[in-house]
Design a protein around this nucleic acid. Structure first.
Lengths: 350, 350
DNA sequence: CTGTTAGCGCGTTCAC
DNA sequence: GTGAACGCGCTAACAG
């Protein structure tokens, strides 16, 4: 019994599968060469004689052949996809990171598969399970808080794993981010240092986002350590926005009219708080200091410009992608974990 | 000659391919059933007896088996990926659209492959060629301006094609967007109707973004049609931002101090222009009317709130994904092309 | 440099 | 309800 049919069915008549694309063997037939030669002409052109190469490329163009990456990846054992799991797209904070990630990976020929966890470890686990099915060359996770199953899966996937946005004391593999607790401490100290005594905290996703929790906890601990109240807090579980910022300040003012400073943990919240203060005739920073977070475009441009914390949002993406790529190239990555830091930008609202 | 080896090599010793993941047959062996039974237990559980199903699921959990989607897709003939090509991620205007798209597709079990064209049709063509290699179930393009090769490729891919963000007189297949020329006309008429006579236009990516070109051209034509100057224009080929908005207004004021209105084609530009006007003591809207575009968070919240154009950014993503999905389910889509419209939001800057 | 052989891991088909 | 064979489209390994 032979495996080659003397008269292969034309693809249009082939039963079952709904595939119709031009295949390698059709190109081979058109060019009058073996399948393998076409494969080589496409993947390692220098290994094929110029004449054949020309004939083959002509046939490829003629037929509009597009290599099947499913088949290629299956045969090769891996195929150039890298899942990127970011927290959310309902808000644009993570866009610069995603952008840098995608840019850098795409430039190296990798395809990005997008997933959003919405700050839910169960959802992350489900996504990881599904995406690992594509036999990715690497995987990029957000944060350092994962379910046990997630950890097990990515560890046994046998590919580089990047944990992004946060710093882990014990990374699964690669890790790029900055220290969110340190942000909380630094901002608290900054506000205290400038003479504030009734210091409030306002944020969104403070329950579900572990990084947010770490910032807040450290912030409160620092206040308490300085003998100040640490319970002046308002928060929402909705994405942040200018509008929400105004509402959070109103809420704070209603419950604690005595506050003289507030850490609004995102610049859009800070902007909203600033506008609300201006509507109420509260002088900023004289009556109330406002500090934002992330150093987004809006912070520097309002009047007065808002003090904030510069975070390495794009850098994290770029550096993470580069580390993953060099790990993929087999280079031993010197630093498995890198802290990209942050910086308090003092402007006119504190 | 037989195709089955009596003693198959353990995967760890298998030469060449660097695959290590647990396979169906390993699960089958562990559960003491045939490969096909495991496949069934996973894909059509009702076709397998409860006892076997239980044994199989146990083995799956035990071994940490994750189905290989490359192999599955290859065998099945298609595999649940949908490429989404958006213009750019260097700016967050397109994020709500991408978010809605991804959300809706993910909920239906499809995986999103991300591509950014950066307003370059050659780059779009390259991306389409590469992404079509994954034998996607559908494809989502931005805009209606493509290279001939792109058109040829997507048309012969035999899958639904969505053109998003703009309206085409002759869609390749599915189409969701709104009329950008109509926006230009409407804003020009609005400004003229409010008594403005020296009406300027300022935008970014005005050369490379065809939708931007259509807005500007129609805007200018409407001014000219009303007997007004249509050459009061400033633009940049960089992404828009608050800072750039201020710079564009400065440029306009330098060259044409007589302007009494300006259409800043993005809300961040409009915000920057407003701030710049405030710094210069120019009264808005008395001395200068400012109209933005996109109705982003910032527009409604500044003081004064900025008049703008509400565009259906998230709706486009949702509707497009839903249309694609119903097309995928074989439902004949009633309307191949849908205009989601726009709305001028009059606030206090015009 | 070119062709041949033997799978990659899974689903379809058709027997039992 | 279960199993065996066969092929999806492509590439690694080995001949020639």
């Amino acid at each position: 019994m032979t495996r080659t049919r003397s008269t292969p069915l034309p693809s249009s008549v082939r039963p079952g599968r709904k595939r119709q694309a031009v295949t390698l063997s059709e190109v081979a037939r058109a060019a009058g060469v073996a399948v393998m030669t076409v494969s080589r002409a496409l993947n390692t052109p220098e290994a094929v004689s110029p004449e054949l190469r020309a004939r083959i490329h002509e046939a490829v163009a003629q037929l509009g052949y597009i290599p099947d990456r499913l088949a290629g990846s299956l045969a090769r054992g891996s195929g150039g996809v890298i899942p990127v799991l970011i927290p959310t797209l309902h808000h644009s904070v993570h866009v610069p990171t995603l952008d840098a990630l995608h840019d850098t990976l795409a430039a190296a020929g990798y395809h990005t598969m997008l997933g959003t966890t919405e700050y839910d470890v169960a959802r992350e686990e489900e996504l990881v399970r599904a995406l690992l099915g594509w036999r990715p060359d690497g995987i990029i996770l957000s944060g350092i808080d994962h379910s046990e199953a997630t950890v097990r899966m990515v560890q046994s996937a046998g590919v580089p794993v990047m944990e992004l946005l946060d710093l882990s004391p014990r990374p699964l593999d690669l890790n790029v981010g900055f220290d969110h607790a340190a942000v909380g401490r630094a901002v608290a100290r900054e506000l205290i240092g400038r003479g504030r005594r009734q210091v409030a905290y306002a944020g969104s996703m403070t329950d579900s986002d572990p990084r947010s929790v770490r910032r807040m906890t450290a912030f409160q601990a620092t206040l308490a350590g300085a003998g100040l109240r640490a319970d002046l807090v308002a928060h929402r579980e909705t994405p942040s926005s200018i509008t929400v910022g105004g509402e959070l300040l109103s809420e704070l003012l209603l419950r604690h009219p005595e506050i003289d400073a507030v850490f609004m943990v995102n610049d859009d919240l800070a902007a909203g708080a600033l506008f609300e203060a201006q509507r109420r005739g509260i002088r900023v920073p004289q009556d109330l200091a406002i500090c934002g977070f992330n150093d987004q475009d809006i912070a520097a441009n309002l009047n007065p410009p808002i003090s904030t914390v510069r975070t390495p949002r794009a850098e994290m993406g770029r550096v993470a992608a580069e580390m993953l790529l060099s790990s993929l190239r087999g280079a031993a990555v010197a630093e498995k974990s890198v802290d990209l830091g942050f910086e308090i930008i003092h402007r006119q609202t504190t």
